[in-house]
Amino acid sequence: MKFDLLKNIENGGCSAKLSAALLKEALQYFPKPDNPNLLVNIDTHDDAGVYKINDEQAIIQTTDFFPPVCSDPYEFGQIAAANALSDVYAMGGEVITALNILMCPADFSVECLREILKGGNDKVIEAGGVIVGGHTLDDKAPKYGLAVTGLVHPHQIITNSSAKPGDILILTKPLGGGVIMAGKKINEIGDTEYRLVLENMKQLNRNASQIMQKYKVKCATDITGYGLLGHALKMAEGSGVSMKIHSQNIPLFDGAYKLIKIGCIPNAAFRNQEFAQKDCRLEKSVAYENKMLLFDAQTSGGLLISAQANNVGKITHDLIHSGYPHTAIIGEVMNKKEYFIHVD
């Protein structure tokens, strides 16, 4: 009998993320760490922490785990791992080691467990890293992910707080993955469309990260649970700039727009809207469907890259030919204006 991982899962993948507003409040009065070697801390809500070991090396540390996004355990393992590894790539690093984090019920099938771990292991190997151990817990709803350590040269760290006015914004993967996942649960989406999203979620952001290093990009983030506008907002806030996003240029998964049109909008998109919309100015011309897709939570989404204008042609060309055919120029960075994000 094939075990369906999605049974009893309400919020899979990055939609299971706690709301950003709640987290912000909880961390409000935390003392700021005062360590000169801590190059990137939680201040700017970046993708990972970065700690300098010596003048040549800094380690990137990050963790991510979540409930199943799909029925197949091997694919779930791959997606959860690709998603966790992504934070290292968003910081411009390479993966060195990873630890498994796994929760599942005590009566979970051995095959299932093995498949999840195999999926994770295969992705870490593909990333050029190695799994050195992990921790498991008995828990009703399965959850899987990794704690990852990466390496980066201290001068080559890519943060989410270094966007400069005049930069161009590039997005490497389509949006709408969360909508398609919700549509799958209620049988409103075709298999072809669904498979395409799964394959995209499994895809590492490694090539994209290497392309960023090749062109000396300084600012990027990966698009996950807070949706494009949520992550763009953190980037604009952290960088002290405003951003213009052209909703018509956003690459979308096939079928996502149609699903939103019938009202298939996942809760996570509403949650992201709640926290991010007040800092966004949306032109009247932006259709409701497009707006909600900009708030759609992605699991193992693409990179949002803020690149110097003179390199944009080369960067997008390289991305399109390195496994990210949907790469698109979606906006630009401006001096700080009334709103952090302007959408037209």
């Binding site: 309400e10 919700a182 209620i186 409103e188 019938i262 009202g263 298939c264 909008i265 996942p266 809760n267």
Partner: peptide, 13 residues
């Protein structure tokens, strides 16, 4: 019914 089904029915109606 759980989200997003009620919204789909609302939109349709």
């Amino acid at each position: 019914m759980q989200c997003p089904k009620p919204l789909i029915l609302t939109k349709k109606a």
